[in-house]
Amino acid sequence: MDRQETIDNLLDHYEHPRNHGALEDADVVIPGGNPSCGDVVTIYLKVDAAADTVERITFEGKGCTISQAAASILTELVEHKPLAEIDAMDFNDMIDILGREVVNTRPRCATLALGTLKSAIHKYRSDRERAV
C-alpha cells in the first residue's frame, strides 16, 4: 500500500470499525489507556479453550484515529489465531501492519490495542491457573 492507501485504510476502519461493541460472554474484559493522547480501548476476548485460539474478539473505545483504527484492524487480524502466535507478535509488527510511514510518530496509539490484547491473554491464563 502506498501512503494514501494506508491512510484510506485507517480512515475506513476508524469510520466503520469492525468487531466493535461489547461481547456478552467474553472470558476477559480488559481496558487499556494511552498517556500520549488520551486514547482508551477495552478488549473483549473469548477463547476457544480446547484449541487455545481466539474464538471471538471485540473492542470498544474512544480516542484518536490511529488508536481506534488499529483496534479494528487487530480484531480482524487475530480472530481464530493461536494465543501463542499473538504472544509472539511484536509491537513493530503492528506498526508495519498499520503502515509505518503513517503511524511511526504515534507508536503508542498504534500499539495500544495489541498491548491491551496481550494483557487480556495474560489475564485469561492467570484466571485459568487460579481456577485449576
Binding site: 480512515l11 476508524y14 493522547c37 484515529t65
Partner: peptide
C-alpha cells in the same frame, strides 16, 4: 491537531 489523521477525514 492532536489527532494526526483528523485532517485526512
Amino acid at each position: 491537531n492532536e489527532d494526526i489523521l483528523l485532517y485526512d477525514q
